[in-house]
Amino acid sequence: MNIIVPIKMVPDLVDELEINEDGTDLDRDFLSYKLNEFDDHALEEALQLKEEGDATVTVIAFDGEETDKALFTAIAKGADNAVKITGDFEEGTASHVLAKALAEAIKDMDYDLILTGVQAADDRDGQVGVLLANYLGVPHVSVVSGVTLSGNTATVHKEYAGGMMAEFEVDLPAVLGIQAARETPRYAPVSRVRQIMRQAELEEVEVGDVDVNVGSEVRRMFTPEAGEGAEMIEGDAEEVADKILEILKEKGVR
């Protein structure tokens, strides 16, 4: 059983995000990047599947900010191989382009299962997992939070609204968009990652220009207007607590 986990770095949402001069993208000069949290769940689910059976896990990512560190971290967590895709795929590249390039890099690999994060904070033109599945011509289920493997099929749970789930049986190879791993994604100690960085090597695959019709362009990017937002309560914790009590009484909640 060979499992591939494509991972992607996204801007850290804890930081303040600023728009560039053109007003068409983030100002990426001072952004810090981190692993897309759903990809971390996909990796965790892959590692869980590896631990309960006989599987190898390969992580694959586009070269860019923090990519090496994320790939080595994945190995430190238990992945077997790490592949870096080189080429012209800077941060902010459209999902269609990334998915098509991933398909180019993956199509000749020997794989049974591809686990991606269900979505990312910046996949404006669609979720990479489902696009990838369609470029590869393999089945897909997204918003998955439970995977069981049996022979050449996977039984998966897809989440709907209100806590409802649907169970599907999927022939492999397939792409699953992971919403949540069965366990909280594991943590790799920094010392272990440093050690791996000295010992392990990243395999590199070059992908040239891909032919894909994105068909849409951002003409304006902006931060949603504040204004009709919250009335901010000033003061220290005591004062805020007093004011909240006052509001509750006023609104008849108290």
Binding site: D122, E217, R219, M221, T223
Partner: peptide
């Protein structure tokens, strides 16, 4: 589109 966890909106033209 509502992107980046709701922190940024992007207006796209589709052709």
């Amino acid at each position: 589109s509502q992107l980046y966890g709701g922190k940024v909106n992007a207006e796209s033209v589709l052709e």
